[in-house]
Structure formats: structure tokens, C-alpha cells
Amino acid sequence: MKRPTRLGEGQKLILTANRLLDGHIVWRDAAGQWRPSITHAAQLDTDTAQTALETLDAQKEGVVGVYEVAVHPGIPPSPVSVRERIRAFGPTVHPEFATELEP
């Protein structure tokens, strides 16, 4: 079983995945909806994130490869790693492909 992500001080977890049909990155909000913008991703503590990971049905929700990402809380939350920042905001080499953030 996967080891839970270790969080630094003040950090939270958010859930991410790729949409099954087009592979695009999505983030799970507090209502359990998968949204293309990270802005309103539900910011969870470790236990809540773990429970959500164990109970959600990726196929039914139209996503693939669900996992948790450590973030600095905020609106939008800011992923801790470069990799997840690139996933959240788009490739750094094509500004025109930057992910539009919801207000």
C-alpha cells in the first residue's frame, strides 16, 4: 500500500487525476467534482485525503490515475513541487497553453 504523503508545516493535500477521455489534468473540489482549474481544489489533511482516495470510484467519475499532491494552502493553492506546479499551471515553454485559473 502506498505510503501517505509527508506534509511540511502548514501544507495541505489536494487530489488530482487525468480525465479519462482527453487526459487533461483535473483537481477535485469539496463537492467531489473534478475541475480543470486548481483554484477551488479541496484542501485536505492527510486522513481526509486518504479516505477520499480509498472511497472514490475513478471510472465512474471519468478520471484515471488519482493521487494526492502537497500544496501550500491558498486560493489558488500552490503545489510544493515543480512537477505539480507545471501540471497545475501548464508547460512553462508554451505560455499560450497555460491553464486558465477560475476566479
Binding site: L20, H24, Q59, V64, R87, P91
Partner: peptide, 27 residues
């Protein structure tokens, strides 16, 4: 795969044999 008859683990070898990866932002 889309209707759920194949899981991602089952589908992955098939898509890779046809050149289809799931990368950072998309397929």
C-alpha cells in the same frame, strides 16, 4: 476502456503497443 470493461491497468499495455502514453498534461 471508456465504458469501464477494461481497467486502466488492463488497458495500459494495449495503448502502449499503439504508441499512446498518458503524459503530464494529456495523452
Amino acid at each position: 476502456r471508456i465504458d469501464g470493461a477494461l481497467t486502466e491497468d488492463e488497458f495500459k499495455p494495449f495503448r502502449l503497443m499503439n504508441g499512446l502514453y498518458l503524459q503530464l498534461h494529456a495523452y
